[in-house]
Design a protein around this nucleic acid. Sequence first.
RNA 1: CGCGGGGUAGAGCAGUCCGGUAGCUCGUCAGGCCCAUAACCUGGAGGUCGUAGGUUCAAAUCCUACCCCCGCAACCA
Length: 476
Amino acid sequence: MKKFYITTPIYYVNDKPHLGHSYTTIAADILARYCRSKNVEVFYLTGTDEHGSKIAEAASKNGFTPQEWVDKNVEEFKLLWERLNISYDYFIRTTGEKHVKKVQEVFSKLLKTGDIYKGKYSGWYCVACESYYTDTQILSFACPDCAKEVWKLEEESYFFKLSKYQDALLEYYEKHPEFLQPSWRALEMKNFVKSGLKDLSVSRTKVKWGITVPGDEAHTIYVWFDALLNYLSAAEGKNIWPCDVHFIGKEIFKFHAVIWSAMLMALGEKLPKTVFAHGWWTVNGEKMSKSKGNFVNPHTFIDNYGCDAYRYFVMSQIPFGQDGDFSEKSFFDKYNSNLANNLGNLISRTFSMLEKFSLQDIKAEVDKESSLGKLIVDFDKKYSKFMESIEFIKALELIWEVINEANKTIDSEKPWNLFKIDKVKLEKVLKNLLSAIEIVSKSLSCFMPETSEKIKKIIMDRKVTEPLFPRKDGKD
RNA sequence: CGCGGGGUAGAGCAGUCCGGUAGCUCGUCAGGCCCAUAACCUGGAGGUCGUAGGUUCAAAUCCUACCCCCGCAACCA
């Protein structure tokens, strides 16, 4: 049996899960479900990143130990994934014993091979923000975040020999065009690597909440070095490395395309087959940010519209990879027009006709001569192509093409007239519609699992008991 | 000359590689239908395709210059 290993990033537990987190996780879920539907054995990994100074800070501010704090916050993520019907196979936490051990093991190994060495890190340090900044980030000796004075400091640090892998990385990108996607984003990464890589500081003396460097208690391991290794530690013993797809947001593309890849090279491990960086959401045209407090809380939309409507909206609103905008207005419009009117109403009218014309016993059968039938015949091939090239929006458009054509067919064939004049034709038309609905239900199972099940049940019962997506009123 | 993405109807986007009647969704207007969740179907209105030049019989599409928006520019996941 083929195996497929897919991951989301591990999310930093200090934030509550928002639109961005849910987007990546839903996308990965859709691909995972698609693969399972093709009888591929899937390992879908998600989890949380639980180390770092910000977490320690927040914990103490709230009167918790860091561990208590992350234990509490991780539940927020698990709850949301449950509500969104996320079918992950394993949830990794970087404070887990197995992961910690793996990270220290890797660190020791690279120390031994010389890919990690002890050196001196120097940079501009802001006492208030407790972090370092580079020359380019500093404007006239002021911290770019809080504008306070910064000081040139130097401290002992372990470094990863990132520079050593510059040429190997470029060669790898060249030989594996499918590795970094979308390709236009890959160009950015290539240019970045070409511009020259510096060795990466992978330990901190000022951060206490982290995995300690084996044999050197004064240092903790840099959170990214720790976090990236989750993909490897979670897979240990499962014989599924290399990973097939890392789904990530564009803001962390570099960490995956460059640092993670170099780490794997240093370890002698294979690189993942694909790293796919999706775009960012704006909200009502504005960037999501803490200062604006405009993070979209998925729960609000799940409460009002349901889990599947939410999954549908985020996938249908923008092509996967590009940036896009989230607004309640567009959510509302899409819900009504695509889900309630097109899909929901198609199901309603079809099954009410079956009942009205006493044709509940007929079986689905494609009329290959009809334009609807032609769509159905070509469907699987096109659908698979879009899913496999991670063009989710195109797969959805294809499904809606069938839905719209089915609605058109009803209008042009006028079954209510056929009922009076041509019962043979009537059956033919309705059988064709049934096969359209079957294929819609089947192909929607990755995107909207609950809805897909509901439609299946409607097909079985030959009866709609309640609307799939009740139309919403009250918004302009 | 740091790197990259983008500027096409009221909104959101496709089309640009491989020039040839400017297309889709939503909204809007008119008509149709009556099976259906006031849903569905058909048609109309609405764009000098960021600006200025150039190549060509023909440019949203190719070339040149410029303007505007948005990311990235490594130690905050």
